[in-house]
Design a protein around this nucleic acid. Structure first.
Length: 497
RNA sequence: GUCCCCAUCGUCUAGUGGCCUAGGACACCAGCCUCUCACGUUGGUAACACGGGUUCAAAUCCCGUUGGGGACGCCA
């Protein structure tokens, strides 16, 4: 494993750069203890950390934490064209926001390319790999012909046993694995069970590109082996890749890790997740006002179950998480359920934390007075919002400067003759109030309504419009207490000009 | 085209042959609470894709059909 000592020696560079500088690419970092569970999350930095990746990361993290093991983050940046630093940062920010901490330094796959190439040299020396000089045109023809003939689309192995002397001049070969041509390859999957495929279906995969860089198929195997990964938990889309990877493990005589392929997440329409529905980066969920603990709980329940339990704290999840609990069928992303869960965690959050978040969203981060006011208002506010964005919108009236902006409905209510007649007298009654407490204020409103021959609602609604600028708000007498006498009377007065 | 995987209420799921006239949660509908909107609470609608087997007994096991998904790159 990666040692803690190395971390202390690292220069003050961005955390995610450290491994690149510190790690000698050709080095075995296999954990000496075979009993320790080691998992990893290995995204490719070609985009943000999307929701499916976040769930994969969560499962790996939970599994490692459950077993007191190690969880690594590995950036699969071997595609130099599509990998970007912005994507790397987005992934790291996403992991941090979700509070999925990794152990050791981040492993950058591209930095280990020399090690990957060295493994291929071993394979070549052992006669388990060979150079192939096929052109992309030839390959394309092969695929077309195979499809037309109703056969699997694969490379036909024409350079497998050919004399290297036949090599066309000036062509750099790729290196392919000399894969078994008969029999079958079996994978015992932790989720899908035993899965097998006939080796005739598989072709001799490319290990090293003609420019000498390793392919994904090779890199994952070498890195997972070198990092001592014991359990690979990843998306279902890798299930068929596993057969090929298995062949590399076998060729090297390495023990393969235990695989678990979790079903993919689909959009609400059952189709592949697109940007239209859930395939947003986790930062988009943060922006929408979802809490990391809510998202974790939601993602956990999407594809994993522990009986009828729905609300599962992270501590509880670590205690309970296991492979048998993972479902085998794909699931759809459902914002309604996420909203419900988020509402739950929102109500659970402390008023101070919420006030801070709201103040930030309203551009009043450092405003101590606003913070204090919001914190006091939070109990009434947090049952009425399902996310932080909504919470901030609903809280805005508390800290807005007079005169208040009014919604159309509030405006209509205040311009109605009944209200115009009512408010001045009600205001006069409140000016006499000495104890500015919700209970007292309500008593006074009730008494006032009775003498006027009105229902309480007929008094409370205009009051609400005047004090909050809206027809919906927390209990209005609670609002008055929090706002204070001066501000309350001021707002009522504003409606009479 | 070839191979692989999947299939319980609208959605997430419980269920590992009898405890299931299928349970929970979200959503939805109705009631209660109530100064609005929420929260909370009570109740309700709603599913084992289809067809064959195996068995005394099948949502659960087997086969097929249909439907969905995934993989077949010198992408990851």
């Amino acid at each position: 494993m990666l040692s803690g000592r190395r971390r202390e020696m690292t220069p003050p560079l961005p955390e995610w750069r450290q491994f690149v500088l510190e790690s000698p690419p050709i080095e075995h970092i296999r954990d000496p203890s075979p009993m320790t569970v080691v998992t990893r999350f290995a995204p490719s930095p070609t985009g943000f950390l999307h929701i499916g990746g976040a769930r994969t990361a969560l499962f790996n993290w939970l599994f490692a934490r459950h077993h007191g093991g190690i969880f690594h983050l590995r950036i699969e940046d071997t595609d130099r064209v599509r990998s970007t630093e912005a994507a790397i940062e987005a992934i790291i920010d996403g992991m941090k926001w979700l509070e999925l901490g990794w152990d050791g330094e981040i492993v950058f796959q591209f930095a280990r390319a020399p090690r990957h190439a060295a493994v291929v040299q071993e394979l070549l020396a052992a006669g388990k790999a060979y150079p192939c000089y096929c052109s992309v045109e030839e390959l394309e023809e092969m695929r077309k012909a195979a499809m037309a003939a109703g056969k699997p689309m694969k490379y036909d192995g024409r350079w497998r046993d050919r004399d290297p002397g036949d090599a066309p001049a000036g062509v750099k070969p790729v290196i392919r694995l000399k894969a078994p041509q008969s029999g079958e390859t079996v994978v015992a999957d932790g989720v899908q069970g035993e899965v097998r495929v006939a080796n005739e279906q598989l072709d001799d995969m490319v290990l090293l590109r003609s420019d000498g860089t390793p392919t994904y198929m090779l890199s994952v195997v070498v890195d997972d082996h070198d990092m001592g990964i014991t359990h690979v938990i990843r998306g279902d889309d890798h299930l068929t890749n596993t057969f090929r990877q298995r062949q590399i493990y076998d060729a090297m005589g390495w023990e393969a890790p235990h695989f678990s392929h979790i079903p993919l997440i689909h959009g609400p329409d059952g189709a592949k997740l697109s940007k239209r529905h859930g395939a947003l980066g986790v930062e988009a969920y943060r922006e929408m006002g979802y809490l990391p603990e809510a998202l974790r709980n939601y993602l956990l329940r999407l594809g994993w179950a522990h009986g009828d339990d729905e609300i599962i704290s992270t501590a509880q999840a670590i205690e309970w998480f296991d492979l048998p609990g993972i479902g085998r069928s794909p699931s759809r992303f459902d914002f309604a359920k996420l909203d419900n869960l988020n509402g739950h965690y929102l109500r659970q959050a402390t008023d101070a934390d919420l006030a801070g978040e709201v103040a930030r969203r309203l551009g009043r981060a450092g405003d101590a007075a606003a913070l204090a006011l919001l914190a006091r208002a939070m109990p009434g506010l947090k049952t009425r919002a399902k996310n932080l964005k909504e919470l901030a919108e609903n809280a805005a009236f508390y800290i807005q400067a007079r005169p208040l902006a009014l919604t159309d409905k509030a405006q209509a209510m205040l311009t109605a003759p009944e209200a115009k007649a009512l408010l001045p007298r009600l205001m006069a009654a409140y000016e006499a109030e000495g104890e500015w407490l919700a209970g007292k204020l309500e008593e006074r409103a009730r008494a006032f309504a009775e003498t006027e021959g009105l229902k309480l609602g007929a008094v409370a609604q205009p009051l609400r419009a005047a004090l909050t600028g809206s027809t919906q708000s927390p209990p209005i007498f609670e609002v008055m207490e929090i706002l204070g006498k001066a501000e309350s009377l001021g707002r009522i007065g504003d409606t009479m000009v």
